[in-house]
Amino acid sequence: MPHTPYTPDRPPMPESPEQLRARIPGWGADLDPKDRPAVPQERHEPEGTGARRRGFPERQPEERPRERSIEHGTLTPVFGTSAPLRGLSGVVRRYAYRRFGEGRAAHWLLLIAADRVDVVESTVLDAVRGRPDNLIAETGVRGELTHHGWSSRVGAGRVDVRHEALDPLIVAGPWVLAGLGVVAGVRALVRRARGR
């Protein structure tokens, strides 16, 4: 007997609607698409959800210059004020927002680079301020002891465990290589300067 796609009919349901209704609580309750609240996804003024038209909202005061995407025609009337731009990471982020649209990889790659700079800046700054990072506590690795780290992995057949041993190498490798490159570059420059 040929398999389904080689013949015109769809495969029969393994169980009838009656059987499914008896076995699965609520089977078919939303069978009619009209009962599904996001169908169609775009529907003018869907009812019963509390949203209401109020015109353009009042503007939140911009207490300090707020970076924004150049794909926006204006600063949005409401915005988050967590963690304003600061330091070198702030300079990179401001440049990424001012210079590149969201369609450009440079925009996002600069923002990711700034994230890494921010981590270094913040770690140093807080150490100087007397609130040094406690890497053991912050990574939560204590959970390995309190929540069965060993037995959750060994013998569980998880695919992530297969490459877990390599992960630190993969994550740290590019940083170590980049660091070695910087050191080699600096040494070469120093050597050249001394040679002169």
């Binding site: 038209r53 009337p77 915005f79």
Partner: peptide
């Protein structure tokens, strides 16, 4: 979702795509 309920997208029920609350990205 943070959303205004009154922009082009919210008026069409697309609250996740609100245009009045995220200056950092339009996407």
């Amino acid at each position: 979702n943070v959303y205004c309920g009154s922009c082009y997208y919210c008026a069409r029920g697309l609250y996740a795509n609100c245009h009045n609350v995220n200056p950092n990205a339009t996407a």
